[in-house]
Amino acid sequence: MNVLSINNISKNYGKVTALQNVSFSVPRGSVFGILGPNGSGKTTLLGIIMDVLKATGGTYKLFDENPDNQLRKRIGTLLETPNFYHYLSAVQNLKITAGIKQRGENDIERVLEIVSLTNRKNSTFSTYSLGMKQRLAIAAALLGDPEVLVLDEPTNGLDPVGIAEIRELIKLLASQGKTIIMASHMLDEVEKVCSHVAILKYGELITFGNVDEIFINDDIVEVASSNIDQLKDALNLMPGNLKVEIKGNIVQITFPVGSANLENVNQFCFEKGIVLSQLQIRKKSLESKFMELTN
């Protein structure tokens, strides 16, 4: 079963296209990252799913059904910014959330404890720091223990400890079988917690699928010697039809994931009469992969 399936969703603001024919689906139980640079349409997409924005074209389904407000009550959502009544306390605000969701009235203490706001639960929202507001928004999303969570930049405004806590929380929730849809421009965040990913750029879906399949991390071996051209020519003769490139004063050899062996490289060069002055393996970073996909 899919928690969410999106079919050809488009959104225009006048002449500006925010989303263009985006389609993908989120399987139940996945931690689904929606990744993209600023302005790529992540929040717009989630806004459409939550009915605060109207799509120009396309359709979507929640829990394989046509979307309505009753289905939204089953989803805990933090979209873009923490939105609360400034003059009310955390508890009073969460009572309103529980009232709308028609669930979670008895869950307020628990969720405040999770986000470490218990000792400030009766302070008005306007007195909160940015990080505390974000924590309250996460608490509101967790209220009533929903089976699906939609978190848009959940670690926004949090300190390093807070970021680590939220990551652990997401992992914990995922291990409990919950589906988590998370929008982020933080690559390591996605890499560390997501099982699936969709990548957006300028409103277009570049790719989506399993994280391991999309971010196949090629092994890159960097070598150098006194004669760089001779080195490159020699390496081109290596078996396996490898990509060999000169980058400044080093040569990069790209091996399929997990197949690089430094000893073999050294041996091969030595046999060709080349003495290496540098030899090291470098995992291709998610960041450079992301750049490659989005540029």
Binding site: D51, K73, I100, K101
Partner: peptide
């Protein structure tokens, strides 16, 4: 207008009010 300022109108819909409600 407070609902617009605090963006709670959005949140109410997100949390499960219908726009009609």
């Amino acid at each position: 207008t407070n609902e617009y300022t605090f963006r709670t109108n959005r949140q109410n819909i997100i949390d499960g009010s219908s726009r009609e409600e």
